[in-house]
C-alpha cells in the first residue's frame, strides 16, 4: 500500500519547476498576448481594443524578414548537420583517449559570451582583415566584402549554433551499440550501407533533437544579423528587437513575437508528424 505521502512525492518534485514555469513563462506570455491586442504608445499608455490588425500588419509588413529568418536558419541548420554529424561521429567512435578533450573543444566557445564571439567575427570578417584578402584572392569574395552579406550571417549562425547540433548527435552516436554495426557488416552490408541502414536510422532521435535545438533559436536570432549583416540581412528577430527597444511599439512587437512562435509551432507539429514522435522521443517501440 502506498501512503498519501508516497503518492504526493512526484508532485513535490515537480512543484519547483512548475511554479518557476508559471511565474516566468505563463504569466509573461499572458501579458504579451494581451499587449499584442492593444493599441497605444508608451507615452499615452495602452488600451485593449482587440486589435487583431496588429497581426495582419506583422505578416504583411514584415513577410520578407520572416522568410529571410527561416531561410537563414534553415541553411545554417543544414550546414550544422553536415559539419556536426561527421564531427560527432569522429568524437564518438574514433577519438579514443582524446574524446573528453574534443568534447571540451565543442563546448569551449560557451566560455565566452555569445555577443563577444559574434563581434569578434565582425573583426575577423572586416574588409581589411587577412581572411577577407585570402577569400578575395580565391575569388570567393569578388568585391572584397564579406560583412553585410547573407553568407556572413549564415556563417555566424552556423558557428554559434554548431554545439547545439553536435551534442545531441554525439549523445545518440555514443549510445549506439557497436555490435549492431558489426552485425550489419556481418550481413554483407558495406560500411556505407551499414551507415545508411543502421547508424543513421538509430541516431535519428539525435538528428531531430539537433535540428530543433539549432533551427528554433536561429530563426529568432538577431545578434548575427546585427553584427555580421547589413539592412538587407535583417531577420525577424531584428524587427522585433527594434520594435521593442528602438521604436517602442510594444503591441506590434508582441504581435510579431507571437506570429513567429505560432509559425515555428505549426512547423514543428508538421515536422513531428512527418518524422514521427517515435524518433523525437527516441522510442523504438511502435505505437500499436
Amino acid at each position: 500500500m502506498t501512503t498519501l505521502r508516497q503518492r504526493m512525492t512526484p508532485y513535490w518534485l515537480l512543484a519547483p519547476g512548475l511554479i518557476w514555469l508559471f511565474i516566468f513563462f505563463v504569466v509573461p506570455m499572458y501579458y504579451m498576448g494581451e499587449l499584442s491586442l492593444k493599441t497605444g504608445t508608451l507615452t499615452t499608455g495602452y488600451e485593449m481594443t482587440w486589435a487583431f490588425s496588429n497581426y495582419a500588419d506583422a505578416i504583411t509588413d514584415y513577410s520578407t524578414q520572416f522568410l529571410r529568418a527561416f531561410y537563414f536558419a534553415g541553411v545554417a541548420t543544414i550546414l550544422c548537420l553536415l559539419i556536426g554529424y561527421p564531427l560527432a561521429y569522429a568524437i564518438a567512435f574514433k577519438s579514443g583517449r582524446w574524446k573528453n578533450l574534443m568534447l571540451f573543444g565543442v563546448v569551449a566557445p560557451f566560455f565566452t559570451t555569445y555577443l563577444i564571439r559574434t563581434i569578434s567575427w565582425k573583426t575577423i570578417l572586416s574588409d581589411s582583415s587577412p581572411v577577407v584578402s585570402v577569400l578575395e584572392f580565391l575569388q570567393l569574395a569578388p568585391d572584397g566584402r564579406v560583412l553585410a552579406t547573407n553568407a556572413a550571417v549564415i556563417a555566424g549562425l552556423t558557428y554559434n549554433f554548431l554545439p547545439f547540433m553536435v551534442l545531441p548527435l554525439f549523445a545518440s552516436l555514443e549510445r549506439l551499440d557497436r555490435r549492431l554495426l558489426e552485425a550489419g557488416q556481418d550481413l554483407y552490408a558495406s560500411a556505407r550501407q551499414t551507415f545508411l541502414r543502421v547508424t543513421l536510422p538509430l541516431t535519428m532521435p539525435g538528428i531531430i533533437a539537433g535540428i530543433l535545438l539549432t533551427f528554433i533559436p536561429a530563426a529568432g536570432d538577431y545578434v548575427n544579423a546585427t553584427f555580421l549583416g547589413g539592412p538587407d540581412q535583417a531577420m525577424i528577430g531584428n524587427v522585433i528587437q527594434s520594435k521593442y527597444l528602438v521604436v517602442n511599439d510594444y503591441s506590434e512587437a508582441a504581435a510579431l513575437s507571437f506570429t513567429l512562435m505560432a509559425i515555428i509551432l505549426v512547423g514543428l507539429l508538421f515536422y513531428i508528424k512527418f518524422a514521427g514522435t517515435e524518433a523525437l522521443m527516441g522510442d523504438e517501440e511502435e505505437a500499436k
Binding site: 551499440d177 549492431l180 558489426e182 550489419g184 556481418d186 550481413l187 538509430l202 523504438e284
Partner: peptide, 12 residues
Amino acid sequence: NTVFQSYALFPH
C-alpha cells in the same frame, strides 16, 4: 555469418 552473444538484432 555470426550469431552474436547479445544477439545484436536491429532494434528499428
